[in-house]
Amino acid sequence: MFEEIKAAILDGDAEKTMALVKKALEEGMDPLEVLNKGCIPGIEKAGALFEAEEFFLPELITAGEATKAAMELLLPELRKKEDAWQSAGKFVIGTVEGDMHDIGKSIVASMLSAAGFEVFDLGIDVSAERFVEEVKAKQPHIVGLSALLTSTMPKQQEVIEALKEAGLRDKVKVLVGGAPVSSEWAEKIGADGYAEDAVAAVKLAKKIMQ
């Protein structure tokens, strides 16, 4: 059963993945086991294939969507046994102010959800004030800032400064990403890390949560 779920995720077949997960739950399987032995290995394998350039972006995206669909069935069950389960971490994500790029940020958000993170996607054109408010309200472990224009990269720095001013900087890790962004830039503006793509972002987020 776990192998079938994993295979359905790798095929990017959301319907089949959901049907299998439903069946597993009906048969009385432990949802945590379905998650840890079926879904997570599936999406992790997709990530590894993507890194090896054997999988390409559409395959990574559909595998992420299939896993997300499975998570939606599993989450209510997992929450029922609250003491046994918690999300991989809370993650607030958005594209910085003045920047309308949606695609990359949304793929990262989707892959994080698939990896078991509780993700709050603030969308695009998000001001520094809004990031601060949401960090205050949601108390995430990590906040992710996307910038796809050289002209909006400085906004990532503004968000970090605003978090400092609000006294929140030491309460949350800040990750940055986007085509023109680099690890040098991340270091320069005092971010906690840079990820080149969605797979790298999930890895980094998991590492931070360890």
Binding site: F56, L57, P58, I61, I103, I107
Partner: peptide, 8 residues
């Protein structure tokens, strides 16, 4: 132009 890898 946006990537067809992210939207058919």
């Amino acid at each position: 132009v946006k990537p067809i890898s992210t939207g058919s």
